[in-house]
Design a protein around this nucleic acid. Sequence first.
RNA 1: CGAGUUGGUUAGGCGAUCGCUGUCGAAUUAUCGGCAGAGGAAAGUCCGGGCUCCAGAGAUCAGAGUGCCAGGUAACGCCUGGGGGGCGAGAGCCUACGGAAAGUGCAACAGAGAGGAAACCGCCCGAUCUCGAUCGGGUAAGGGUGAAAAGGUGCGGUAAGAGCGCACCGCAUACUUGGUAACAAGUAUGGCGAUGGUAAACCCCACUCGGAGCAAGACCAAAUAGGAAUCCAUUAGCCGUGAUCUCCGGCGGAUUCGGGUAGGUUGCUACAGGCGGACGGUGACGUUCGUCGCAGAUGAAUGAUCGUCCACGACAGAACCCGGCUUAUCGACUGACUCAUCCU
RNA 2: CGGUGUGUGGCGCAGCCUGGUAGCGCACUUCCUUCGGGAGGAAGGGGUCGGAGGUUCAAAUCCUCUCACACCGA
Length: 122
Amino acid sequence: MHTLRQFFSTRSRLLTKEDYSNVFNHSEKKASNRYALLLALPHSGPHHSRLGLIVAKKNVRSAVDRNRVKRLVREHFRRHPQTQTKDTIFMARKGIADLSNSEIRYHLQQLWAKLDTVAAHP
RNA sequence: CGAGUUGGUUAGGCGAUCGCUGUCGAAUUAUCGGCAGAGGAAAGUCCGGGCUCCAGAGAUCAGAGUGCCAGGUAACGCCUGGGGGGCGAGAGCCUACGGAAAGUGCAACAGAGAGGAAACCGCCCGAUCUCGAUCGGGUAAGGGUGAAAAGGUGCGGUAAGAGCGCACCGCAUACUUGGUAACAAGUAUGGCGAUGGUAAACCCCACUCGGAGCAAGACCAAAUAGGAAUCCAUUAGCCGUGAUCUCCGGCGGAUUCGGGUAGGUUGCUACAGGCGGACGGUGACGUUCGUCGCAGAUGAAUGAUCGUCCACGACAGAACCCGGCUUAUCGACUGACUCAUCCU
RNA sequence: CGGUGUGUGGCGCAGCCUGGUAGCGCACUUCCUUCGGGAGGAAGGGGUCGGAGGUUCAAAUCCUCUCACACCGA
């Protein structure tokens, strides 16, 4: 199973406006801290688990930092397969650009763990 | 060797594992392999051009921009060379650097006076008398005000002074020489009561410019609503002017057509291209020969982890593409030149 | 990505075009009025005019660069 999910392509991304507003309006699970916010919508459709990224210019000023955050989140999503198929949105908050790569990785692990415990007890 | 000026190149390397985008080849329905994959500023959007659409014969006005001269360039507000001015001991650096005798305006406060001006304190002459004041006149050297006061310095001259005269400098005009030119040098004349400053004030002169931008533009095209044409139905009901009747129109169904939203495709990278050589030119650059193929994403790829070496890695991420400018930036390498000391 | 606009006391705005004094309202401080408060009246404090450079005798104002913020076009 792990080797099966070790890729990340366009099929595991949220693509259209509807995909995003769907998750926003019907999100069943949330996990957040002061650096980021996660929204998730479980489904049993034909898709894989999908990921959407929102890293606003207002919250992360530099383009280099925006790319860095998005790459780290994708890498985490790719390396840690979901226990349940669901669409997830990641929203960056203001202080995240000041963190180092290892710090961001630590926070991502915490957030996804929180999301899974909520999922276990709906 | 020290201090400094200036131009160019580069922007962590190597290995392993797991990934992303494009493309080629296998395979054929989700895999494998090869190759390629951010910058010198990709940034700011300050200029210029290509490209696309709109408007359009051409010209002028308006408006905007540029502004010493010559050249380069597709073009430029850029670059190169030269001239003037300023700074520096020098290499070198900086320079919006056309016109103020075409006209209009502006200059607070201070000061007597701010522009065809004027005399406050002064200086000098004369008159008067109470003998250091008043009045009349001459003058602009000195003082004072101001950012700026109508050539500067020296000598002569004079009642005191003044381009009043002379010398040098500055200015203006004319001519000669050198230079494509900007300009420079020289000679002569003027005798400076005229020609002050400000044009990043209006303005004048010369030159340049149509407008918008790839979210431009082109193509394909759901659902829903609405439009047009043709055909069917015109039975029943409802609406239309207060009521009734007749006529007419609308509300119905089917097919076709065109516009067009969501969404998709395209524009999308091979071109004023890079590298090397030769020739021409002081140089920017041009001509020519050879060679290379060098990102093309679209919620947006170029990364993560580990090991290792060192100088311990700055500023920072393409979004139609080029040429510049400006701003940010830890360093490393290298060419040329200047000054000072020492040695020969 | 492209195109516009705005930065002035604590807050909201004038002044900029046409260069010389930074002003208005609310708020703040003190005093008067009142038994006390509010309202009212009088006086006062507070501004590198977003930042840097240039033009000018002189810049909030003119010019250039730069930093924030806001708006418009799918």
